[in-house]
Amino acid sequence: MMPTALKRWLILSLLLASVLAVLLASATGSVSMTLDQWAQALLHPGADQGDLLWRLRLPRALSAWTVGALLSLSGCLMQVLLRNPLADPYILGVSGGAAFASLLGMTAGVASAFTPLLALSGSLVSILLVFGLARGEGPWSTTRLLLTGVVTASGWAALISLVLSLGNDSSLRGMLFWLMGDLGYATTPSWALLVLALVFLICLGLARSLNVLAMGETTARLLGEPTQRLLWLIYLLASVLTASAVSIAGNIGFVGLIVPHLTRLMLGSDHRMLLPAATLFGGIFLVISDTLARTVIAPEQLPVGVITALLGVPLFLLLLNRAKLKQ
């Protein structure tokens, strides 16, 4: 792990890298643009390529950043909540509800503009369902939450398969893209950015409590933390983050698992450093992945979820191996 001063610089450079990544992503795509044209378009939205830049590429790049940041922050929270470094944002079934509602909408021919709204309502239903079923009588139990969440997720998966098998062939491709994670429909994610900023600030205030909670619920109580309240709060915050991400881009795998984990490997588990670093890193990672998704076989587009997995899996295994060697 690195010294604190270096960690601060790292966070600053990640912030800078975020801006750079979004700008660079906006300069690349199936319609080629010279650097000069790009700069012109950036400074004068009315210029030749201004529309392309300001109405398509920048909103999409910004969406990618926001979704990556949302998923990564949510992953950090889920890992502390379940006290398991392998937990990811989807583990408790939030995305299943969203996917079911969205696919149902697609089958019924609802306009694609409504997909985010359907996804959001689906995930909210799932959050409340799991929350209500897991709460029950008596004190908090991680096992109970995990089991309720995982079983609910399986239930959604069955319903999704049902919709897929009953759906018509023409909408199948769109559905599969959505299930694998796709930023093709993304518009400027202003409300999601607001959710991200708000939840991020709350989490930063809770960061020291998260450090204590990461050592176990009993330890946290002995160190003065009223854990019942804290655990439910974390569950709700993480779920809202995931729901927002899913409603924009469907199920993008691996970001919420791998980015928090990589950041933990590099920075350790002080959440005051981890949360900002992982949030920024998640954003950058998804911007890069989405740029690749748009360009590798341009003008065809790949679902970004395929790229995050193809990039994330080897990167993760490599770093995990190196961390093991150091110990």
Partner: peptide
């Protein structure tokens, strides 16, 4: 409140299992 209790009563539990990477100093600071 637990916070008040924790300023007066401390407990060393029988088992100590650390799941997440954190430095020894950071852990003591909790």
């Amino acid at each position: 409140p637990r916070r008040v209790l924790a300023r007066h009563i401390g407990m060393l539990q029988q088992h100590t299992a650390y799941v997440f990477d954190s430095s020894v100093l950071q852990t003591a600071l909790t």
